[in-house]
Design a protein around this nucleic acid. Structure first.
Length: 290
DNA sequence: TACGTAGATTGAAGTACCAG
DNA sequence: CTGGTACTTCAATCTACGTA
């Protein structure tokens, strides 16, 4: 498990942070059940820390996130003066340890039809447990800013500002996740999906898609099935139904007009497809929200 | 009046398999 | 990894009729 995956909303939130110096022969405190995430970012020197069975040497420019529910111990005292930032954060949402995955691909079997049209679409934030930060100067500035703001924490506006700066730090961490290169098949699948999303209002055919991508339609279908769990047409239908749901809720257009706007030339056929994915016809879907 | 459903038909898309 | 073929499946259309 290399990463921690947070489901948002809610976003992880900042609690408190600080800067510390450990002189040679001394060590970072060992703790268990801290109850919050503990982000360590080393400016100089090295921290020697183990969490459960995994040992880390956190060097200059590297970060380590300790989890709230795991015990972490120092494996040996610092050998040189070690300067680091620590930051406690937490989430009230779901999180889990995960192996890294290719963030550029949507999850397999993505089901657009079941994404609620009244709520914000949930997403995940994946942070590395242990990483070398790609832009150390940005990380340093953000951490310094948090240290400065700490003195002004009695002000409401400061506490808000702290959360904004913390989100920058989260972004820095997320950008430092090492990605595995995408396979050609994954590339093909994603390009095809892009094309379908851009042309869902048109009469898209597999042949056109093949000509656009310079791949055989059979091959494209195979790639999409493998990476999205859907054939191109099924992907297109799900996306069209998703768009139709938005129009049903936010406009008073007739079913026939909405069908046309999302790429169905026959309202009756649109209704059939909508019912297939939603479990109820378009009109019933609209009425259920009115 | 607008919309939903069902059945028949046809051509396009998907799948399995093989080859380069 | 990609393309091609043969076969199967299903999307799309049309129409008629029922329903809110």
């Amino acid at each position: 498990m290399n990463n921690i995956q947070f489901t948002a909303p809610p976003l992880p939130h900042y609690i408190i942070s600080g800067r510390d110096l450990i002189i040679p022969g001394h060590e970072h405190p060992s703790r268990r059940n801290l109850g919050v995430f503990d982000l360590l970012y080393v400016l100089e020197g090295t921290l020697y820390i183990a969490e459960e069975q995994r040992q880390y040497e956190v060097r200059q420019g590297q970060a380590l996130i300790l989890s709230p529910n795991l015990a972490h111990v120092t494996t040996k005292p610092c050998e040189v003066p070690t300067h680091y930032f620590w930051l406690h954060f937490q989430t009230t949402g779901a999180w889990q340890h995960v192996e890294q995955h290719d963030y550029r691909l949507p999850p397999a079997n993505i089901d657009y039809a079941h994404i609620s049209t009244m709520d914000m679409n949930p997403f995940t934030i994946e942070l590395p447990i242990y990483a070398t930060i790609k832009h150390p100067s940005h990380m340093f500035e953000a951490m310094e800013e948090l240290s400065r703001l700490r003195a002004l924490m009695h002000q409401q506006s400061t506490r808000w500002q702290q959360q904004l700066v913390f989100q920058e730090i989260v972004q820095q961490l997320a950008n430092s996740v090492e990605r595995e290169p995408r396979s050609q098949a994954a590339e093909c699948a994603e390009l095809a999906a892009d094309y379908l999303r851009q042309h869902y209002q048109d009469n898209v055919t597999a042949k056109e898609l093949g000509e656009y991508l310079n791949f055989h339609p059979v091959y494209i279908a195979r790639c999409m099935k493998k990476h999205f769990g859907s054939s191109p047409m099924e992907y297109l239908h799900r996306y069209r139904v998703h768009q139709a749901k938005l129009l049903l809720l936010h406009t008073n257009h007739s079913i026939a007009r909405i069908a046309e706007e999302v790429g169905f030339s026959q309202a009756a056929y649109f209704s059939t497809i909508f019912t297939k994915y939603e479990g109820l016809p378009p009109r019933a879907f609209r009425q259920s929200y009115r």
